[in-house]
């Protein structure tokens, strides 16, 4: 397969995943903003921080919903906005059009212009519907790929791109919010409440899954465990790493070559395995998150290198 084709499939999936994760984050922000104590938590700011878009907020004072809609949904200048991600995913898809199925292409093609010329007021008003729409587009695309796409190496590259982006989104979220999960310190202005813990789970649409696994109570240790090392929750880092390992393994078998990226993905896997049963928490959550971010960044570079992107 052409390296450019592989790279485009990889990035197409990353952009789409990014759009979807960002949509989930906005949902979390909305939910938190209506809960008690929202003013001091400045939850919208952490949404910008997780997506790396804080620099786009130039006004002083707390971040508002409208700011977030402008920056993360509509702004075509911001490469991380949902709008930009959809446009770029579609551009990636278009240049490898013949490697996609009709349904996959339609899913991409129908959505890309949606946010062109959308007014801010209008978008704020219709926000829940728009967010749902983004999530639906991503699901339709995934579904089309799941049932229709040939399992050639292109499929592996696509899945790897999606998994790496998803893992990094979870890691960035933990990187920004790790302090709410620290038992040792107190937050200024009062004790940490379960709202803050649940916000992290909301951001990853994992509330129900969490309760299913750990019962009805929140604890920082359980939440960290759930998001980092649980291998059943699809937005956990460990699950994403499993996915990457499986697809990289397939590539290695098909090409008959083990590259540096294969060593690295194993390294991340071992690291998370060692973190089970609360160990990751004892090791230091912040340090573990940092280490995983570093390793996944390295992995992305090594994949590009190994397959001549």
């Amino acid at each position: 397969m052409l390296s450019r084709t592989a790279a485009n499939l990889f990035w197409m999936a990353r952009h789409l995943e990014r759009a979807e994760s960002t949509a989930r984050l906005i949902t979390m922000g909305q939910r938190m903003a209506v809960l008690p104590g929202s003013a001091y938590r400045d939850e919208w700011r952490s949404v910008l921080r997780v997506t790396g878009c804080e620099p786009f907020h130039t006004r002083s004072g707390p971040v508002t919903e409208a700011d977030v809609v402008r920056i993360l949904l509509l702004d075509s200048e911001n490469p991380a906005s949902i709008h930009s991600c959809l446009v770029r995913a579609r551009a990636n898809g278009r240049s490898v059009r013949t490697k996609l199925t009709q349904e996959m292409w339609e899913a991409l093609n129908l959505s890309w212009r949606r946010f062109e010329g959308y007014g801010l007021d209008e978008a704020c008003q219709e926000l829940p519907a728009l967010i749902d729409w983004v999530k639906t587009r991503a699901s339709v695309f995934r579904g089309a790929a799941e049932t229709g796409m040939l399992r050639h190496e292109g499929h592996d590259f696509m899945r790897i791109g999606g998994a790496i982006e998803r893992a990094q989104m979870t890691l960035r979220l933990l990187d920004v919010k790790y302090y709410v999960l620290l038992p040792e310190t107190d937050v200024v202005g009062g004790g940490r409440d379960h709202y803050q813990w649940s916000s992290v789970l909301h951001a990853l649409s994992g509330i129900r899954a969490y309760h299913h696994v750990y019962g009805g109570t929140y604890s920082p240790a359980h939440i960290s465990d759930f998001l980092m090392v649980n291998r059943a929750f699809p937005r956990s880092v460990a699950y994403c790493v499993d996915q990457m390992r499986w697809h990289l393994e397939r590539l290695a078998q098909e090409h008959g070559v083990l590259a540096t990226c294969h060593k690295t993905v194993d390294e991340i896997f071992e690291f998370l395995l060692d973190g089970q049963d609360g160990a990751i928490f004892q090791r230091g959550l912040h340090e573990s998150v940092q280490q995983c971010l570093k390793l996944t960044n390295r992995l992305a570079n090594e994949i590009a290198e190994s397959y001549y992107f």
């Binding site: 052409l2 390296s3 450019r4 592989a6 013949t98 190496e153 590539l251 090409h255 070559v257 001549y308």
Partner: peptide, 23 residues
């Protein structure tokens, strides 16, 4: 057949090569 763009190709040893995931 492959649909290639100029960036996919290079010339070496008087032959044209396309860059693929296996070299």
């Amino acid at each position: 057949i492959e649909l290639v763009e100029p960036v996919d190709l290079f010339v070496d040893n008087d032959r044209v090569w396309m860059k693929t995931t296996t070299g």
